[in-house]
Design a protein around this nucleic acid. Structure first.
Length: 273
DNA sequence: ACTGGCACCTGGGCGC
DNA sequence: TGCGCCCAGGTGCCAG
């Protein structure tokens, strides 16, 4: 099982856990490991205890667990998962947090690599980590006009430009490669040297690929009660990611892999210019 | 102000 | 079977 959370996986998690945790009252908080990307503050234990969850939101790849006392801000990093278990279910070595409800169920956070984080805030959108994030890719504000305007004078490669969370959130390594393929843009092209009409295709492709992935339940399908994920189906729809040397679905040219900013980029050197 | 590079961690897959 | 190496989907921070 490998569900590295990009935006569709986080959104899938949000939808998966929401019906199980909304309106639940927290009667116990078990934190077994506080050393995530940042240490989990002891404040969180106190704030969560006795609180009732009102809704589960999302901003970028952060889950916002809204309660009557404030908001828990949860990031899943590269290897985090959340799911619902029976309270008291024996914990594995990477099961760092259980939030137990009066119903006898619990929300469990598992994160082997511990790149995730958990914060508390009464004003989550004003939180240090969320404050200066760019727009959501699926909102209207994110458009060709926006991309074109914000890219003028920028020499950075377009792949890294769209993965920059100050520009737009939620475009991770997989969907960056995929959306550039769909819009026919070479990943190394300087962001500032792309014409507006090409940004129209790019903005559309980003929205399209993310929406399709969300509809497919993220790249990995999960059962949010009980735990284990099932290898997902969106992977089968990927055009370039992880397809080195396999034929381009359009022109049959073998897919090329390069490294940009220490991450793999997959593209078709014939279709993308 | 940008840009590129490093760091934080563990686990899985591969070649020998 | 075992060991060492390389790779992984995120992102804040640093120096230049």
């Amino acid at each position: 099982m490998a569900a590295m959370p990009e935006l569709p996986e986080v959104e899938t998690s949000r939808r998966g856990i929401a019906p199980h945790v909304e309106e639940q009252t927290i009667v116990n908080v078990v934190i077994r490991e506080r050393r995530l990307r940042w240490p989990i503050s002891p404040i969180i234990d106190t704030k969560l205890l006795g609180a009732t969850i009102t809704s589960v939101g999302r901003r970028a790849k952060y889950l916002l667990i809204n309660t009557t006392q404030g908001t828990a801000i949860l990031h899943l990093g590269m290897s985090g998962h959340v799911y619902v278990v029976d309270a008291g279910t024996p914990a594995g070595i990477h099961d760092h947090v259980d939030v137990e409800f009066s119903s006898g169920k619990a929300l469990r956070l598992t994160d082997p690599r511990r790149f995730g984080s958990l914060h508390w805030s009464e004003d989550p959108l004003g939180h240090e980590l969320l404050r200066s994030l760019g727009p959501e890719p699926l909102c209207e504000e994110f458009s060709d006009e926006y991309l074109w305007t914000s890219s003028r004078g920028r020499r950075v490669a377009i792949k890294q430009f769209i993965m920059n969370a100050q520009i737009v959130v939620g475009v991770g390594n997989i969907y960056a490669s995929e959306s550039l393929f769909l819009s026919g843009i070479h990943p190394k092209r300087a962001a500032g040297r792309i014409a507006k009409h090409r940004y129209e295709r790019l903005a559309g492709s980003i929205k399209d690929v993310l929406e399709r992935a969300i509809r497919a339940g993220g790249t990995t399908l999960r059962d949010f009660y009980g735990g284990d994920g099932e290898a997902g189906y969106f992977r089968q729809q990927l055009d370039v990611y992880d397809r080195e040397n396999e034929p381009c679905r359009i022109c049959k040219t073998p897919i090329t892999v390069i490294v940009q900013g220490q991450r793999s980029t997959f593209y078709c050197k014939n279709c993308q210019r």
